[in-house]
């Protein structure tokens, strides 16, 4: 017996999901961060964020098609983390590192928080 492992399958799937997002195909939720709006797929959000997992597994909230985040959340930080969810690439601009880390804490993305901590310590 044999098995063929397509080593780039995960990244090919993620790239297609990001193409669907950019064309607003089958997106099913709008995330409101202060006055900015972000369209996304609930499944991708809950796969990447503990907060969204809690929201969309709650039978009273899973059918919402718009979610407002806490006003303390920085829209730029959220945009960078949303891009990370769909690309695996985290853009770390010096001026935004704290906003990104605080947003990752809020979204319960612990591994990203740990990586940001290590990045800050190494750049100190």
């Amino acid at each position: 017996d044999s098995c063929i492992q397509f080593t780039r399958h995960a990244s090919d799937v993620l790239l297609n999901l990001n193409r669907l997002r950019s064309r607003d195909i089958l997106t099913d939720v709008t995330i409101l961060v202060n006055r900015q709006q972000f369209r996304a797929h609930k499944t991708v959000l809950m796969a990447c964020s503990g907060l969204f997992y809690s929201i969309f597994t709650d039978s009273h909230k899973c059918n919402l098609n718009a979610i407002s985040l806490d006003p303390k959340v920085d829209p730029e930080g959220f945009a960078i983390l949303l891009e990370f969810m769909y690309t695996s690439r985290l853009a770390l601009k010096e001026s935004l590192i704290m906003a990104i880390m605080n947003t990752a804490i809020y979204l319960q993305m612990d591994h990203v928080v740990d990586t940001c901590h290590r990045f800050i310590k190494s750049s100190d």
């Binding site: 044999s2 063929i4 492992q5 090919d12 297609n16 193409r19 669907l20 064309r23």
Partner: peptide
């Protein structure tokens, strides 16, 4: 897949969704 002979395919695995139709 214990005990199965695994062949690694490095090429693309699925179609690429275009940026726009």
């Amino acid at each position: 897949y214990e005990g199965v002979n695994t062949i690694k395919e490095m090429g693309r695995s699925i179609h690429e969704i275009p940026r726009k139709e």
